[in-house]
Design a protein around this nucleic acid. Structure first.
Lengths: 233, 233
DNA sequence: ACACCGCATTGAAAATATTCAATAGTGGTT
DNA sequence: AACCACTATTGAATATTTTCAATGCGGTGT
């Protein structure tokens, strides 16, 4: 049990009602009655950086709401190449694609310290039957996932290495609530952008030398948003 | 009216019940009662190659079920670059993303001769309220769209130009019912793969010289699936 | 048949990205 | 503080891709 820890597990949905980020999560619009229909436990789980939440091919009995941290979705090609196809952050749902019992088409790995709520699929199933409010919340998640994936294609997989890195930094910055953001390893940046680790490193280093990127403590960083947008939108 | 023709419009949902490809479309599982709830007209429309069905930024009052042909979804970057983010074929739904009234995040353009059924959004809205069967059909469409987009990233935007072209040809071939398939212009291939028109052309020409690709009449082509898969999965 | 237009192909030079290998940081551990 | 493991950076040689320009090819309309 090297990577994964359950630090703070608790039972039932009682605390969902008072969840600090409830306005952001799947259950945002549920009523008190809806919550009372939840009989299976929802666990609050923490993962260390680099933990695998689920694997490509897994049958998933759970979905996960991201409370904090970043999760990368990694798809493996038969030839061994890997590509990060999307990043999940606060309020996103991991495992959405597998709600209908399909095996996962990618694996989910934490990039930094991550807290999630683990929701049994059966809860979603039964709520889906009874509450249209959940339907809309799920549809919104699908919508966001799809437009995220399309953005990934146009913004992060198009143009030369420098623009790609620039657009990735801008995306990471937008997704952060803070005015700093988590800066992935160069290897992960490469896998997100479809370029090599070294190329990601060269571009990142160049931005740093130009003062457009400032690394901070703890794998976090700051960027000159205005200037980066100016040069690369 | 250069690009768009309505050759064969008809009213109401009567003919949906007997549609030849109904098993493939959104309305596959509707009952007779469900159909009787449809009061707005569903039109059968044909488009010439290169017709714009909707534009990036449009508010869409319709969704479109593809009956035959291929539709490209094109996203424009602020800097003028464009990228094709997905292709729709028989049974797919164009405009899914915009069911909730959001402006379209990409434009939809026909690649060859295309027949669609144009469904007013209001029909979907009202059916959604009453029939859970439609819900599942919609969810399946979302699922397919998302996994399509992720595949696009890993298979078509990763690796060198030659593998990308090979994987695109394989994808086009799989999506075709025929044993031949529609071969896009080199420009479109480039926009799908994030490479230049010339690179797409060079790779395509090389495959032709190697006998792995045989162009046929009418922009269609045949590939040596086994050999291409062997070399590029 | 002819000219014409748009798309495809090709080649050579220039730009960009990858590879491989060495060096430098960085954080964590003893 | 010294050490270790891991990641980042950098440089030089190589490979790939883009760019730009020329040429070929196929169908359309006259």
């Amino acid at each position: 049990m090297k990577n994964r820890t359950i630090e703070n597990a608790w039972r039932g949905a009682e605390r969902c009602k008072n969840c600090a980020i409830r306005h952001l999560v799947l259950f945002a619009d549920l009523t008190h009655d809806d919550f009372d229909r939840i009989h299976h436990p929802i666990d609050d789980i923490e993962f260390k950086p680099g933990s695998r939440i689920y694997l490509q091919g897994d049958q998933m009995p759970f979905v996960y709401t991201v409370r904090s941290g970043l999760i990368k979705l990694v798809q493996h090609l038969p030839n061994g190449d890997r590509r990060i196809v999307r990043i999940l952050s606060q309020g996103d749902l991991a495992g959405l694609e597998n709600l209908d019992g399909q095996p996962a088409s990618h694996e989910a790995v934490t990039m930094d310290h991550v807290r999630v709520c683990r929701i049994p699929r059966s809860i979603i199933e039964s709520l889906k039957r009874d509450t249209p409010r959940l339907h809309d919340a799920l549809l919104q998640r699908w919508q966001k996932a799809l437009s995220g994936a399309e953005n990934w294609i146009t913004r992060l997989s198009t143009g030369n290495a420098k623009s790609r890195v620039a657009r990735l930094l801008l995306l990471l910055d937008e997704n952060s609530e803070d005015d700093s953001f988590f800066l992935p390893t160069r290897e992960d940046m490469g896998a997100m952008l479809g370029i090599t680790t070294e190329s990601a490193s060269k571009m990142t280093a160049e931005f740093r030398r130009n003062g457009l990127l400032r690394p901070l403590e703890n794998h976090r960083a700051w960027i000159d948003v205005r200037e980066l947008r100016n040069q690369f939108d």
